[in-house]
Design a protein around this nucleic acid. Structure first.
Lengths: 263, 263
DNA sequence: CAGAATTCTCGTAGGGTATACGAGAATTCG
DNA sequence: CGAATTCTCGTATACCCTACGAGAATTCTG
């Protein structure tokens, strides 16, 4: 993973960058430089962010280093620091950008009627996002970029749950529980593919390589439950399918539980 | 996050290291060198692993580099490679060690009667493990060390669910869903504290620093649900408490859902 | 008891990372 | 045409992992 994240420097500057393409009440020239004297920039923030995403998609997050990205853009490494204060900030911008790519209906836009269908949509879009951008799984979400993309996602999920009549605090709590589950599972799924790509070995092949375990080290007496499941064909052959099934199952059960408390 | 993990080299050698302290049917001297000619080792694997855990606990995973660990042990960096084939293998050993520290009753040992209480115990022990070893949150779990510690955890959880009479495949699926939820949440909790430690700033302070967001950029029309929750006091002041509540809530709902399908 | 065999020890070297600093180049304003 | 402004980017630093191979320590063999 990544080590430390997110600008400790000036939150104002960070927020201004995140919201750079949104008009807001106090719209001053905090980001848009008034074009006057001075050398003309050869790039702009959006180009840098987009190129960063592209590079991370194609070659992995590690390849999207400041040096690598600069080479891709045909400029010197330090030139990037004209557009972005640090690598961490750049990552924030990349993340909020792709968070905003999810196609989630905003307020007033048409959406599924059933609340579960609405949550389902959030789940699908989020998983698809992780699939498009596997590197997301390597980025910490503890202090997320507080930009338009992230807020749109939270807004959508909360609006889906509001209809349940759960009370403000419980609604928020439920939304958090759902995002924890969905985002974590989607992240694990993406990470799994990343590992397959990086090692050139499927996860199934990896497990198979460890067959020795069962023959040599596995002690049936110490593991009766696993043995029982095994003999009852409780293990799926495909790691991937097992993960997908367990995701489906867990989300359905979680929503069942939430629905029940709402009655 | 960490980049790539887990020995692609020889699974046999890896397994032998992981199970080094367990007697097994085919017990040969694959690990224990027959003590004969040759210089005496100044360390052993367990010491290296233990020192690695200690160092990662105290100074963070980054500080537990091969160089740093060697300095701590008073040997040259390359000396460590006598005991452990690579840094990734060492990490596997550290992880399985702490997985095994969880106090989960084995087969035949006394345990809570209620299955939910048993799952609860798994949850408590796992969260406590992450709290003792915050660096676990930075380690990928996609290809876990297939050692005694990991197997004991899976065995316990499966045994807790077997009593529900769910059928082998569904039991396994449910167990996977539970570990995904519990492990992910515990990992996020630990990561959160790690970030606080690394930045010297509490997460609450971090959010507070972004108060500008609400005044300057937040658009009420685009975020009616968030606004509603806000006005109904649906947001908790403490990030940490909010996370804990949502964890509790989500786990309870998940177990509710599982219980219902079992009827 | 000497040399051979074996095993552990560890310095060096190489290719990777983010970014502080400051000099130089390009552009426009007065 | 200078001065002011802004963008460009080479250099230098301090880390990371580990392949390689020479040297040190110990015991076995005769």
């Amino acid at each position: 993973m990544s080590e430390r994240r997110s600008g400790e420097g000036q939150p104002d500057k960070t927020l201004a960058l995140l919201w750079r393409n949104h008009r807001h009440p106090m719209a001053d020239e905090s980001v848009d430089r008034k074009r006057g004297a001075g050398r003309r920039p050869s790039l702009n923030v959006d180009e840098v962010v987009q190129a960063g995403i592209q590079l991370a998609d194609d070659q992995g997050l590690a390849a999207a280093s400041m040096g690598g990205l600069a080479k891709e853009l045909g400029v010197g490494t330090m030139t990037l620091y004209t557009y972005v204060p640090s690598k961490d900030e750049l990552l924030d911008l990349m993340v909020d950008q792709v968070l905003g790519e999810r196609e989630l209906p905003g307020p007033g836009e048409p959406r599924p009627e059933d609340w579960r269908e609405q949550v389902e949509l959030y789940s699908r879009q989020t998983r698809a996002m992780f699939q498009r951008h596997l590197w997301l799984s390597q980025v910490s979400t503890i202090r997320p970029p507080v930009g338009p993309g992230m807020l749109a996602g939270r807004e959508y999920l909360l609006s889906a749950l509001l209809g349940l009549g759960l009370g403000a605090l419980e609604t928020n709590t439920a939304a958090l529980a759902i995002t924890t589950y969905v985002d974590s599972a989607a992240s694990l799924e993406a990470e799994s593919q990343l590992v397959e790509r990086a090692t050139g070995q499927s996860n199934d092949a990896w497990w198979y390589e460890r067959n020795d375990l069962w023959e040599t080290y596995f002690d049936v007496d110490r593991h009766p439950a696993m043995t029982t499941i095994w003999h009852a064909d409780g293990y799926q052959s495909s790691t991937r399918e097992a993960a997908a099934d367990s995701y489906r199952y867990g989300l359905d059960r979680l929503l069942d539980g939430i629905e029940n408390t709402a009655l």
